[in-house]
């Protein structure tokens, strides 16, 4: 028993650090994905043909290729010496091409999540319906006013369930970053396993920690959804007087 406590004290600092990294990566990538995804969705629905094509290309690339390749491309691919003349040609020091594992992880996960979030937001914006935009414009609102005051408040509510899904996926997908030596929760667990060969304990335990995180997200997003619910739009029969 005391051996187990001792072992726990030995591994916990590592796992704890890894957990913090995983949480940072998940939160950061979700935020980056949101900041990229929402404008991308708006561009796909309301943008000029040129903007639409640009946004669609981005979504296609990052949804259509494996996350691992994206991660490798950003971490190893950009560091390719062949790119040095290119960087110099546009006046950048070649060192900008060499990213730290953490920065590469944020970039890859953020860009990947942005593509998925863009699709969720686009679906939500289109679900709001053109009638709402028409009514807003008929009152004399500019298109931006209509998007801001009328379309987005409804679209963001509709996007909550798919967005929670994306958050739950992302927390787990961050575990691929161990492969570029980011010391996240899984990376730390893997190091411990390689020393103690205790995978039968570590894998379920670490898996359980991921499960707790996902359950936490589900619970929080459920509360957010309930708090923002529009009366009369839920599935029950509306009250009529």
């Amino acid at each position: 028993m005391s051996g187990l406590v001792e072992f726990w004290h030995m591994i916990w600092p590592h796992l704890g650090r890894g957990l913090v990294v995983t949480l940072k990566l998940s939160g950061g990538a979700l935020l980056i994905g949101f900041l990229i995804g929402l404008p991308t969705a708006l561009a796909r629905v309301y943008g000029s043909p040129w903007l639409k094509r640009l946004a669609t290309t981005y979504v296609d690339i990052f949804r259509g290729t494996p996350l691992l390749i994206q991660l490798f491309f950003i971490y190893y691919g950009l560091a390719d010496p062949h790119l040095v003349p290119l960087a110099e040609a546009i006046g950048l020091p070649p060192s900008v091409l060499i990213l730290s594992p953490m920065v590469a992880a944020y970039a890859a996960l953020g860009l990947n999540s942005g593509a998925y979030q863009a699709e969720y937001f686009r679906g939500a914006i289109q679900a709001v319906g053109s009638g709402q935009m028409m009514a807003a414009r008929a009152l004399g609102m500019s298109r931006n006013q209509a998007i801001w005051h009328v379309v987005l408040p409804q679209a963001l509510r509709l996007a909550i369930p798919p967005w929670s899904n994306e958050a739950a996926y992302l927390v787990k997908y961050t575990s691929v970053v161990y492969i570029i030596a980011v010391p996240d929760l899984f990376g730390e667990a893997r190091r411990i396993m390689s020393v103690y060969y205790n995978q039968m304990v570590m894998l379920p335990f670490v898996g359980f920690i991921y499960l707790l995180m996902v359950l936490g997200i589900t619970w929080v997003m459920g509360r957010v959804e309930a708090a923002l619910r529009i009366p009369g739009l839920e599935l029950e029969e509306p009250e009529r007087a």
Partner: peptide
């Protein structure tokens, strides 16, 4: 056009009230 629309009221077949 926004200035002109502001003085032209419009009522639609399917209401289009702002749902939120």
């Amino acid at each position: 056009i926004n200035k002109i629309r502001a003085k032209v009221g419009m009522v639609f077949q399917d209401f289009n009230l702002f749902a939120h």
